[in-house]
């Protein structure tokens, strides 16, 4: 990477991290509160009656999924709202007029999304310690899944922002697609509990693979083989990156 590009990447990343930390009450506190409620209600109150799930207490079972849910939501919404705001306010032109290659623009914004996703994941993990002891099966699997998932959803948020023409457009996808997929992505249940037909259908949901891989990292159990999960996530990243790269290079939604 040329030195200039590295400086440009750091500038975008620095701007993005400054942005979400400046408004930490809106970006970092809500997931901690929401997940605390999930831990109390689903983990403690309901979970105590559910019993064991795949050999673990229900609380221990849902922790990886809830962390992953926070990571997905935050990496997505960080990039979607930041990039769309830059379009809306016009300051995306600061980047468009400068000699920053498209892949650096993408890397900078995705880096910002990953930073927020990872930070929120860390905060939620800390919150979970109040409810259940932390179990770690493989740090490498946890870190790899965390990074790949946040990269994937940061790219998805970027794609959303490129096409968005209003602030409504960046809330429609999270509300009507992302949240349902997350809830149906095995966060609160093992897909092995589903009837065979629904279990097969649920494999079309990409979040299943991320939750499964993440749970493997913490608990050592999985609904889907790890290699297969990583292959699917990387495949989605490749498709989204190609799409976003072409759109930004052509100036779709950015240049007239």
């Amino acid at each position: 990477m040329k030195q200039n590009y590295l400086i440009a990447f750091n500038s975008i990343l620095n701007k993005e991290i400054t942005r979400f930390t400046r408004i930490w009450v809106q970006t970092l506190v809500p997931p901690a509160i929401t997940m605390s409620l999930y831990f109390v209600i689903f983990g403690n109150l309901i979970g105590s009656r559910v019993g064991q799930m795949d050999g673990f207490s229900y609380m221990a079972f849902i922790v990886p999924g809830l962390i992953m849910m926070s990571v997905i939501t935050n990496s997505y919404s960080n990039v979607a709202s930041s990039f769309y705001s830059a379009k809306f306010q016009g300051n995306i032109e600061e980047l468009l007029v400068s000699p920053v290659p498209t892949y650096i623009i993408i890397a900078g914004y995705v880096g910002g999304g990953v930073a927020r996703g990872v930070l929120v994941g860390f905060i939620v993990t800390c919150v979970s310690l109040f409810f259940v002891p932390l179990q770690i099966h493989s740090v490498l699997v946890i870190v790899t899944t965390l990074l790949l998932t946040s990269i994937l959803f940061a790219l998805a948020g970027l794609l959303n922002a490129i096409f968005a023409k209003s602030f409504d457009d960046i809330s429609i996808i999270p509300t009507f697609i992302l949240t349902p997929l997350t809830y149906l992505g095995g966060v609160f249940y093992s897909t092995s509990l589903l009837p065979p037909v629904w279990e097969t259908i649920s494999h079309a949901n990409p979040i299943i693979y991320m939750v499964s891989a993440f749970r493997n990292g913490f608990l050592g159990i999985e609904n889907i083989p790890l290699f297969y999960s990583f292959a699917v996530i990387i495949g989605f990243i490749a498709v989204l990156y190609t799409l976003v790269y072409r759109l930004i290079s052509k100036g779709v939604g950015l240049r007239s």
Binding site: I7, A8, N14, E94, S98, P99
Partner: peptide, 19 residues
């Protein structure tokens, strides 16, 4: 420019985009 960003940051970041 981003109206919520500090003036110094706006200028320093812009310089960064040019390496």
């Amino acid at each position: 420019f981003n109206p919520f960003e500090k003036i110094e940051n706006i200028i320093v970041n812009q310089a960064g985009y040019y390496g």
